[in-house]
Design a binder for these strands. Sequence first.
DNA 1: GCCAACCTTGACGTGCACGTAAACGACAGG
DNA 2: CCTGTCGTTTACGTGCACGTCAAGGTTGGC
Lengths: 169, 169
Amino acid sequence: MTHKRTHTHTPEPNPTTQAPTHAYLQIGEVAERTGVTQRTLRFYEEKGLLKPPTRLDGGFRLYSEDDVLRVEQIKRLQGLLGFTLADIKDMVEAEEVKSQIKATYRKDAEISERRDKLRKAKEVTVGQVAVIDQKLAALHDMKSHLEEKLDQYDTWLQHLEEQSRAQAR
Amino acid sequence: MTHKRTHTHTPEPNPTTQAPTHAYLQIGEVAERTGVTQRTLRFYEEKGLLKPPTRLDGGFRLYSEDDVLRVEQIKRLQGLLGFTLADIKDMVEAEEVKSQIKATYRKDAEISERRDKLRKAKEVTVGQVAVIDQKLAALHDMKSHLEEKLDQYDTWLQHLEEQSRAQAR
DNA sequence: GCCAACCTTGACGTGCACGTAAACGACAGG
DNA sequence: CCTGTCGTTTACGTGCACGTCAAGGTTGGC
């Protein structure tokens, strides 16, 4: 009989914090949950879209839930918005910059340093919003264009129905 | 000295109808105006996205203003909505009914057929609008997410400034 | 300790959407 | 008629985003 390996890799005991949703995932599970192939996950890593995950002693990749979220983010950016992986890399790097800022943000640091980091994070985010705004504008433009066309179709259909009625008599 | 050829090909005298915006365009002009390469225009023709344009006796392609519009439409469908050229081909074929609607005598039998085609063309456009709405929703979602963060950054910056003022005293 | 399931790193292949080069013909100002 | 510019076809090349083996190593239930 075939038997599944129910690998639940918990690198740390993890006593109280966080329910053991799945602890750490290996590549097959991540692939299944995100709907991309293992190849794609390795490819994204190679291209710098995913940070190199921790490894098991034997070399198996161990992903976090955050990685799953990131993959889903990548998929959204790619599939819905049509960005190239190069574009997306910039965006996830911006995300990375922000989390870096978060990580190095110290309550006890100099106020001016904290302010600078916050401003930097804000700047990055503003850039992201700008990219989105561009897409939004283009899409709105196209939509109004299409709706104009729909009106045209409707008037033509009107015409045809009139002709149809005229001929029925 | 180099001299430009100011080719203005007007196949018909075209007396009263339409201002002579540019008459008929050859491939270089279309390429320049649409922002795609000549190769791309020939490629689209080969793939059935553009109907074979009329030719000059020597074989030069002569495009119409409608062709320019179509190329721009193709670019939007591809770049903004992320459709493949195969998808787009189906769409523009359904839209081909437009040229049919203009000509043709209205025989009774053809009226219902044309109405069906028009409805199909309208459906295609409606589908495109639906895709746009999806993307708009996704983008708005992302944007509000980012703006939430921006607000967060701003309030933190506010806090810092207050502390800074308190310390100045 | 066995073995099936799972993973690893190459390396080559594929579909799409063109890019690029070569060799040649067509158009029009002078 | 000459010449510079523009266009034609044919054919091979390219970048992206993976797909698809191949050959081997790792893990864990039994």
